[in-house]
Each structure stands twice: as structure tokens, then as C-alpha cells.
Simulated assay, not measured.
Amino acid sequence: MSTTWTAFRRARRRSRQAWAVLAFVVAAAVGGVAWFFGNGQFAVAEGPGGGPAAAPVADYSWMKPVAPVAPVPHGTAAEALETLPVKGRAAKDDYDRSQFGQAWLDADHNGCDTRNDILRRDLSSLRFSDGSKCKVAGGGLAEPYVGKAIEFRRGSESSKAVQIDHVVALGDAWQKGAKQLTPKQRSTFANDPLNLIAVDGPANVKKGAGDAATWLPANKNFRCHYVARQISVKAAYRLWVTAAEKDAMKRVLATCPGQQTIRP
């Protein structure tokens, strides 16, 4: 009887240990998913020096994906770069912002405009305007381009401190294939969260319509992610790169050969 009871207790203890291990694995998996869709999608590209931790909110059920021209390819950003056509810039004299549709549409039809969607995605400690579930009134940004903390406060002047950057600028896209897209595709491009990041206002102004050959974030820890995101966007909308742009991207990716493409 004693031997049977001892064996029973051991089996019961092993069962509890097995359930504890299973619970830990499940928690780790859930935590990993939350990390990636929160800080992780920005942090995975960063070097050992650390860097920005943007978009801390793990639940993105309120923001729906949009449909690009083509899916973002799996694999490394360096591999995806090799699939992009290399051409010269087309003329820009016929470019106008209106060719990309109305600014900050509700492209995903979730009831909130794209600017507020991106603020909600990238800011922490969010505050909303009274009576609104969309209009972001304030929050903290772990800014990726210059690598510093910024406080966002909605206001006629204060809002300029945080701007929403098109990672592939609209003017750059126009000269590298977007002219051939349909008006609807260009509108989607301008409002695609894949191509949008909340950033430091002055840094965004300084970037202008520059590509990787003419402008890179001052925060070197973010450059791998930044270039990978540009490549992902260009692949998704079938845009091309110039020879100088490709060379600049390859130099950045040489420091992070395992950098993956950025997928929605």
C-alpha cells in the first residue's frame, strides 16, 4: 500500500510539473507574439546598442490591414532588395500630393483616420480627446529616427513635434513607379501602416522626399529596420530603386545580414 501511495504521489507531482511547464511555454509564446506586435517589430532590427521601443500596444484588433499591390516577400531584406528593379528616377515635374488621394483617410474602415491610427499604434500612455475613441490627445513616443523620448500633445503648434512619416516618401515613390499605379492603389500606399511611422517632426522635415542614398536616420540602431521597411514597401507596391539607393541599402544591411522584411 505504502509503495503504491508513494508511486501515486510521484506521478501526481510529475503531472503538476508538466502542467507548469506547459503553462510557461504558452505564456512565453503569447508574450512573444505581444512583444513583436508591440515593441518587437521595431526592436528586431536594432544593434546591441539598443534603440527605440515604439508601438507598445499589443492589441491591434482595432486596426485592419490594407491590401497592397503585392504581398511583402518572406525572407531577408537583402534577398528582397535583389528582386527590386534598378532604374533611374522618372520626372517629378508632374508630381502633386493630390495624386495620392486625400490625406489621412480611414483606409481600413475602422472608424478612425490613418494619422490617429498610427499615433495610437506608436505612442504609449495614450490619452484621447474627450468623447473620442479615435482622436489621440497625447502620449509618449520612443522616437526612432533620433532615438529620444518625445511627449506628444495635440495642439495647433505642439502637434508638430510628432509627425507621421511616409517611410518611402510620396515624391520618391512617384519617381520610382507609383505613377503607374491606379489612383486607388496610390491612396492605399499613402495610408498603408507598413509605410507609416510616428517620428520627430524636425527629422521628418529634414528627410523630405529623400531615399536611402540621400537620407538615413541619425539613430544608427534603427537603420536596419528603416531600410528593411523601405524595401518591404517598395516590393509591396512594385516600385524600383536607383543604383545609388540600392548601394546605400546594401551597405546598411551588411551590418545586419539576418534582417527580415517587415510584414504587416
Rank of each mutant, 00 (worst) to 15 (best):
A18Y: 09
G258F: 11
Q185S: 10
S124Y: 08
E79I: 00
A178W: 04
A173M: 08
E157G: 10
V72C: 05
A161H: 08
L81Y: 06
A178S: 13
K250E: 14
L170E: 04
A212G: 12
N204P: 06
V167P: 03
N191Y: 01
K246D: 02
K207R: 07
V86M: 11
F24I: 15
F189E: 01
C224R: 03
G50N: 07
P257H: 01
P73K: 00
V26N: 09
D211F: 10
G171M: 05
K92A: 11
A90L: 07
S15H: 13
V69Y: 06
V44L: 09
L239K: 13
L253R: 08
Y145G: 00
Q230H: 13
D172H: 06
D122S: 09
A212K: 07
A58D: 01
Q163F: 08
D247A: 15
S15K: 10
A212P: 04
R9L: 15
A34L: 14
D192L: 06
K92Y: 03
A28R: 10
D93A: 15
A77K: 14
A254W: 04
D59F: 03
W62C: 03
A235Y: 00
M1G: 15
R121D: 05
D247W: 06
A29K: 06
G40M: 01
R9I: 13
P193D: 04
G139C: 05
L181I: 01
A173R: 08
P257D: 02
A107P: 04
V233F: 02
V66F: 03
K179M: 07
C112W: 06
G201D: 02
A28G: 12
W5C: 09
F42I: 12
A218R: 10
A209E: 14
G210A: 08
A243Q: 11
I231S: 02
W104V: 10
D130L: 14
P193L: 00
L84G: 05
V233R: 01
A45L: 11
A149E: 14
A80Y: 11
N221W: 00
P264G: 15
F152D: 04
N204E: 09
K246H: 08
A67K: 14
P202R: 01
V69S: 10
W19A: 15
R9S: 11
A7S: 10
G31K: 10
G51D: 00
R12A: 10
I118A: 08
V72L: 15
A218H: 14
R89I: 00
G111A: 04
W215L: 12
D192I: 03
V72T: 10
F8W: 12
